[in-house]
Simulated scan of single mutants.
Amino acid sequence: MPQPRLACFDLDNTLIDRDAAFLDWARAWCDEAGLGAAGVEWLTAHDGGGFVPRAELFAGLRQEFGSAPTVESYDREHPLFTYAENAVLEGLSALRDAGWRVAVVTNGTVVQQTLKLEHTGIAAVVDYCCVSEAVGVRKPEAEIFAIAAREAGAALDGWMVGDHPVYDVAGGQNSGLRTILVGDRRGGPVADHQVESVLDAFRIVIG
């Protein structure tokens, strides 16, 4: 029998609103540390959507304000501010009910990304969670998608859905997957579809 098809999803700013969670974390941490609104403004201005290395970000914060969290404490605390909308969890479950194998493919650390996946409930409604640090390869390399397909029990045939033109769109295309770009980023290869929300992507994948 042919293997099921694969639907891959990025995590941050695709299945969850990572930037909103970062803002909530920054407010809580700065309030406790006494940095106030100025600290929050600095963190959000220099966060780079999570792509600035945390050690670099917090070194800059310490230089500016004399105080900063450790990367280790951030990795444990930030995931507790994340959440997944019920419609997202229902959409992932609906894909599996329709015969798709569903995988999350995310760059990041094992501690932080695993905590996010468990805290939000996403880990419970997908077939496999592929975290780059755990498997030793990052998006956009084709190998990470091959690992996701193998571990999810699927053919490397289907979709990659994410918010980043290079990591998600180019990565999916490198692997022979069709692609859906979530959000309004520009640059890089053109996805098969571009949508405002992952909820729109569910409707495209499920047909």
Rank of each mutant, 00 (worst) to 15 (best):
G153A: 15
R150T: 12
V169M: 03
E151H: 14
A152L: 10
A149G: 00
V169K: 00
G158D: 05
A154V: 00
D168I: 05
P165D: 06
A149T: 11
V169R: 02
A170G: 06
R178F: 07
G162S: 06
G158R: 01
W159M: 00
D157W: 00
H164N: 14
Y167S: 14
V161Q: 06
L181Q: 09
G171Q: 05
D163Y: 05
R150F: 07
Q173D: 05
G176W: 03
A154D: 03
L156R: 10
R178I: 07
T179W: 07
L156F: 08
S175K: 04
A155K: 10
V166R: 02
E151Y: 11
V161C: 12
T179Q: 08
V182R: 00
G162Y: 03
G171D: 03
R178Y: 10
P165F: 10
V182M: 14
M160R: 02
G162H: 04
G158M: 04
G172Q: 08
L181S: 11
V182Y: 07
L177V: 06
G171C: 10
N174T: 12
T179F: 01
A146C: 04
R178C: 11
A154C: 08
G153T: 11
N174A: 15
R178P: 04
R150L: 09
A148Q: 08
N174K: 14
R150A: 15
P165N: 10
L177D: 00
I147S: 04
L181T: 11
Y167Q: 15
V182L: 13
W159S: 01
L177Y: 00
D168E: 07
V161G: 11
G176H: 12
D157H: 08
H164P: 03
L177F: 04
G158I: 11
L156W: 13
A152Q: 10
D157G: 12
P165M: 12
R150P: 00
D157P: 04
V169H: 02
W159N: 02
V161F: 10
G158V: 09
G183I: 15
G172A: 13
G153S: 13
R178G: 11
D163F: 10
L177A: 10
A148W: 06
E151G: 02
A154Q: 05
G172F: 12
I180T: 03
S175M: 05
V161I: 15
L181P: 03
L177M: 08
M160P: 01
L177G: 01
G183W: 14
A149Q: 00
V182E: 04
A155N: 05
A146N: 07
A149R: 00
I147Y: 01
I180D: 09
I180R: 03
A155V: 07
A148F: 12
G158Y: 04
V182N: 05
G153C: 15
R150D: 14
Q173S: 09
M160D: 02
D168Q: 08
T179K: 10
G171K: 03
E151Q: 15
M160Q: 06
S175G: 08
V169Y: 01
D163Q: 11
A155T: 00
V166A: 05
I180P: 11
M160L: 06
W159P: 00
I180Y: 05
A148L: 07
A148E: 03
A155S: 12
A149M: 02
D163T: 05
G162Q: 02
